[in-house]
Design a protein around this nucleic acid. Structure first.
Length: 294
DNA sequence: CTCGTCCCCTGGGAGC
DNA sequence: TGCTCCCAGGGGACGA
């Protein structure tokens, strides 16, 4: 969904490209940095913060920031990792203040829930109006069995994302292709917006039972997924490089969509006279062209 | 197991 | 102009 926040920035829900762009934006501050102090402004987001969340982060060095699906993972010194999910409205911004300012915080907005203060003076601020995100601390060796991460499917930008793997994954899945692509247990990182774009690009119907998609079509699906995600990443990358955005807002950038939120528009495929329509599948909007998505 | 439904939350937009 | 209501989204819980 596209909407504008109070300062006129265009906001998009964080799916894989947004989360990866945020990861790249956080990395220069997090990786090799040390957390001096953490200010948690409420006791929970979607879930409660873990016990002594702030105390356990104070003084910790950050080794690396990784992404798995839509999750961000900050590996900390001492074999512990900070697991973060942005839900639907979570974002980070980076501000640079002197140390004194942190102890007399000013100018934080109503939805700034967590503020990390780094040794070098940067503040990393997590803002989440709808509070569907969450943060947790997990022993790094136990990440593989952490419930939210344990059952995540294939990384769509990884080497394992092949037509053969897709066919094997969906071999016994009766669910409609649209629903199956959104299911993080099969493929990790896709959300409603990009799934609509991917299916349109691959000329595949959202209604097709996932198991009915043949290998040739899986090849198209793979190709479309990589193209759509990489184009979005490129847009995010150019936002990071754009110095007009140096107020530190991460991960939100303009995209051009072929189908999402474009009901009534003409299908953009060459030679197709179809029109984009909106239907509901599993309680979520699907935008597609019934003419060429078969 | 798989499938469908509902809920969490807020702000924007439609409609009156 | 100002009010009310509906809706978007990811993930987890729950029941069939």
């Amino acid at each position: 969904m596209v909407f504008r926040d109070h300062s006129g920035f265009s906001i998009l829900m964080p799916e894989l490209p947004e989360v990866e762009t945020i990861r790249r934006g956080l990395a220069p501050v997090f990786e090799g940095g040390r957390i001096l102090d953490v200010w948690v402004r409420r006791k929970d987001l979607r879930r409660p913060f873990p016990l002594d969340f702030d105390k356990r982060l104070c003084g910790r060095g950050v080794l690396a920031v990784l992404r798995r699906g839509k999750y961000l993972l900050a590996h900390l010194e001492g074999e512990e990792s900070l697991v973060m999910h942005l839900g639907m409205s979570g974002t980070f911004r980076i501000e640079n203040h002197d140390l004194a300012a942190f102890h007399h915080p000013r100018g934080h907005s109503a939805h700034d829930h967590v503020i990390f203060h780094f040794e070098q003076g940067a503040e990393v601020i997590y803002n989440d109006p709808r509070r569907f995100g969450f943060m947790d601390l997990v022993a790094t060796p136990k990440l593989l069995t952490y419930p939210s991460l344990a059952h995540l499917g294939i990384e769509p930008l990884g080497e394992d994302f092949t037509p053969e793997a897709l066919q094997a994954t969906f071999a016994s899945v009766h669910a409609p292709l649209k629903t199956a692509l959104l299911d993080q247990r099969y493929i990790a990182g896709l959300g409603n917006i990009y799934v609509c774009e991917i299916l349109h690009r691959a000329c595949l119907s959202p209604f097709r039972p996932a198991q009915s998609v043949n290998k040739t079509e899986m090849g198209r699906l793979r190709q479309a997924t990589v193209k759509v995600l990489c184009a979005a990443l490129e847009a995010g990358g150019s936002t990071l490089r754009d110095h007009r955005h140096v107020d530190g807002r991460l991960g939100y950038f303009q995209h051009h969509f072929a189908v999402y939120d474009r009901a009534g528009a003409a299908c953009s495929h060459k030679g197709c006279a179809g029109m984009i329509t909106r239907i509901v599948q599993g309680g979520r909007s699907t935008y597609f062209c019934a003419q060429c998505q078969i």
